[in-house]
Nucleic acid binder design. Structure first.
Lengths: 364, 364
DNA sequence: GCACGCTGCTGAATCGATAAAGCAGACCGA
DNA sequence: TCGGTCTGCTTTATCGATTCAGCAGCGTGC
């Protein structure tokens, strides 16, 4: 971005000249100060409307020491995270809260790992944004730790039990995973279960595995625990099931840490001539869109990423307003949504058009 | 956003004091000016690193009269557009180009219709962003017209034949729709075709219908043209097919203006005991993700929204750099991706795991 | 031996908005 | 009639970064 003949913008000075006052008075008039007469205020507002005045945000930000913007940061530039449907829901949630506060949303990937300061810090220290929401940070991300330690206004999406000083909003993954696993155990009587986890350097992967193990333990099946690590991708779900099948060890149910992996797995199972749910009952996690559209539909734990993001953003605004002092951890409940893949009676007879809103939802 | 004890940031003044020069010299040193000695530059760079100096973006923007940011604007706050997978692809494309130019991306919905100036204008006139990318604007959006007329740096996503002064990047929807329709006509010998269009106040809806009609006309079937208007939602696709079936008029193929509607329709067809593709061959449009995961997979025209967005953003930067003078219209080709829903032999025998990359792609 | 040019900085101005202090004139009560 | 309070502005300073005109001091050419 270099030259360009830019149309000079309309400033307060222009309004002031037009009305015959100083720009300070114009500013006060637009701010509806009690120290300005109604008559002048009217004149200023009229002039502003006629000239199409829009306050310059850099000028305002500089003076107020506040950018009027927050940033949504995605640590790994990895296409996987950024391109995921999850992100769309998060963005929707953040936007709706930000709009309500009349604040801009900056979306940023942590591209400049090279520089000493992480994208988080740069963006806050430069005053580009007043605070940040960080999504999908891995457990070992040092940047997140230093950021939290620096005391800047940040809210993390997800759970960070090892960062007690951090403010975060996550889903109750352990309880959720335990619930969906127990669904397979008790409702469908499946006892030989496989778990394909998420990457174990993300808290989500750890927690969902823990919930799975807890459910097994609760049924005296701790010794039967069988976990394969995936990476949340469709391919890794497929690969995990290929490996499981080839190992020869039998299983009649599988709990996946997300729907993408469950979908990848279902394709493999079908290709091997195994029926879902008859031969293997499958459950996923997230319900960000995919689970509803596959055949069979995937039974899953619905995580409202949008709600999480909205709460996180509201919390960020509370922090910025000085209404939230110490660190705060919020965990949202998660909802079991049953579909065909676990063997539950489909909400509508198989093959009949099932409306999206017709899924059976059970709140834990 | 009100009070808050903010840690005072590190400014040029701090660096200058530390090194024992003025802040002007410090600025020039960091800019690698030839008028500053190597020794001083080194000292300044060291001090900057030690203090963790990050230039204040408001100060810089104010002085340079350039924000260092661009905005991605979504006109309708309608959840449908914002929540659509399409948007994710667009954001990915815009981000990648913006990152390459070291510029921030602001995501904005056109929330304040109430105000006189549209979100587009406000955001540019306030200097918050140096230019904007506008997605999914309806044909009758007056804001877009005034914006284009105002000569501000804007690139529209989509085709705007009625706005010759606009710079835009779109897909060749007419050719694409014609191609996919002809696929049904010639490859699969379907002649009684239904088209479920998108909303006809969007150019996309108009163009895809036109391509459909052109294909029919090319085969002497102009009189057989049967078009129902949908709104790109799954529900409207389902409703359109319900109406078509109930009308009693037979059809053996259906062309949908996007994959969501095709999916909604397939559910209805299945519920009515009709097989896709045997009884009705179905084709969709977009291939943003859904089409690959349904059963049967949906044959569709792949539109690379990400590429479109990247090109649009690159074009915006060219405009900002003064390298692009007049309006420029770019139309990208679109790719036919055959899957099961049209009756094409599946790339892999039905029921076998089909890897995502194994779809058959045909470039028009 | 002196003007001239170069090097390497300083000083001052600017970008636009806004907060705080200041200052006329009107008005009021005593 | 005079101190005092309002009203309705104006003046001035500030937020950080950057640019441009100056201006010392030094070396060089003739």
């Amino acid at each position: 971005m270099a030259p360009r003949t830019r149309t000079r913008g309309v400033t307060l000075e222009d309004i002031a000249q037009r009305v015959g006052i100083t720009r300070a008075a114009a500013s006060m008039a637009l701010a509806d100060s009690t120290r300005i007469s109604e008559k002048t205020k009217r004149a200023v507002r009229e002039a502003a409307a006629e000239l199409g005045y829009v306050p310059n945000s850099a000028g305002r930000a500089l003076r107020r020491q506040r950018a009027g913007a927050i940033a949504l940061i995605v640590p790994n530039t990895s296409h996987h995270v950024f391109g995921h449907t999850y992100f769309m829901h998060v963005l929707t949630g953040v936007s709706s809260s930000a709009n309500a506060h009349d604040v801009q949303v900056i979306v940023s990937t942590n591209a400049d790992e090279a520089g000493r300061a992480s994208a988080f810090e740069r963006i806050i220290r430069s005053g580009t944004a007043d605070g940040v929401i960080v999504t999908a940070a891995p457990v070992d991300d040092a940047n997140v730790e230093t950021l939290v330690a620096s005391g800047l206004p940040v809210v993390l999406l997800g759970n960070f039990p090892y960062l007690p000083e951090a403010t975060s909003v996550g889903a109750d993954d352990v309880a959720a995973s335990r619930l969906v696993t127990e669904h397979l155990l008790t409702v469908h009587g499946r006892t030989r279960l496989l778990h394909v986890s998420g990457p174990l350097d993300h808290q989500t992967g750890i927690d969902r595995r823990e919930g799975f193990l807890a459910a097994l333990a609760g049924h005296g099946l701790a010794d039967e625990a069988w976990v394969v690590e995936g990476d949340m991708s469709e391919e890794s779900g497929a690969a995990a099931v290929v490996a499981a099948l080839d190992s020869g060890r039998p299983f009649d149910g599988a709990v996946f840490a997300n729907d993408d992996m469950a979908f990848g797995a279902m394709q493999v199972l079908r290709a091997r001539g195994l029926d879902v749910p008859t031969d293997v009952a499958v459950v996923g996690f997230d319900d960000f869109g995919l689970a509803r559209t596959t055949t069979p539909g995937i039974t899953t734990m619905r995580v409202s990423a949008e709600q999480m993001a909205r709460i996180a953003t509201d919390t960020l605004f509370a922090i910025l307003a000085g209404q939230q002092a110490g660190p705060l951890h919020q965990e949202l409940p998660v909802q079991l949504v049953t579909r065909d893949s676990c063997g539950c009676p489909a909400p509508f007879p198989r093959g009949q058009a099932a409306a999206p809103w017709a899924d059976t939802a059970v709140t834990p």
